[in-house]
């Protein structure tokens, strides 16, 4: 498969999945605030954004398996950097919460942090190594 086709397939799944994730997340926040939902409802509704999130990671997995070995290496390096960023924040902020009374960091933000760090790393490594974004 060409990288162009793999990229099209990637974004064709990633973008709608991200939109479903964001809108359902905002929907749960709104519903929890405005509607008299039963206590278990937010737990049940969380299935929707989690399914969308799983789709985003499936899109990334599929993209990596469909591109060639050099481009795959760039993506894998970028994912590792994204994970390192998440681990650094979890550990660093966790220590500050324990020992410096830092305000609690919502673990919800670790997923967006991963995607931002991954995207920045992919851009930098691609520019350096001559791959394609």
């Amino acid at each position: 498969m060409t990288v162009e086709r793999a990229t099209r397939r990637y974004f064709a799944l990633l973008v709608p999945a991200m939109l479903v994730f964001m809108s359902s997340t905002l929907g749960i926040v709104w519903a929890d605030d405005k509607l008299a939902l039963p206590a278990a409802a937010p737990y049940a509704l969380t299935v929707v954004p989690i399914a969308a999130l799983l789709s985003t990671y499936w899109a990334l997995w599929r993209f990596i398996t469909e591109i060639d070995e050099f481009l795959r290496l760039i993506q894998i390096k970028s994912i590792i950097i994204g994970l390192i960023a998440v681990m650094m924040v979890i550990t660093g902020w966790g220590l500050m919460e324990i020992y410096a009374d830092a305000p609690a960091l919502g673990i919800f933000w670790l997923n967006p942090l991963f995607w931002v760090a991954y995207a920045i790393a992919a851009l930098i490594i691609t520019k350096r190594d001559g791959g394609v974004w």
Partner: peptide, 8 residues
């Protein structure tokens, strides 16, 4: 493969 791969 991609042209970028050949280039690299």
């Amino acid at each position: 493969v991609s042209r970028q791969t050949v280039n690299a």
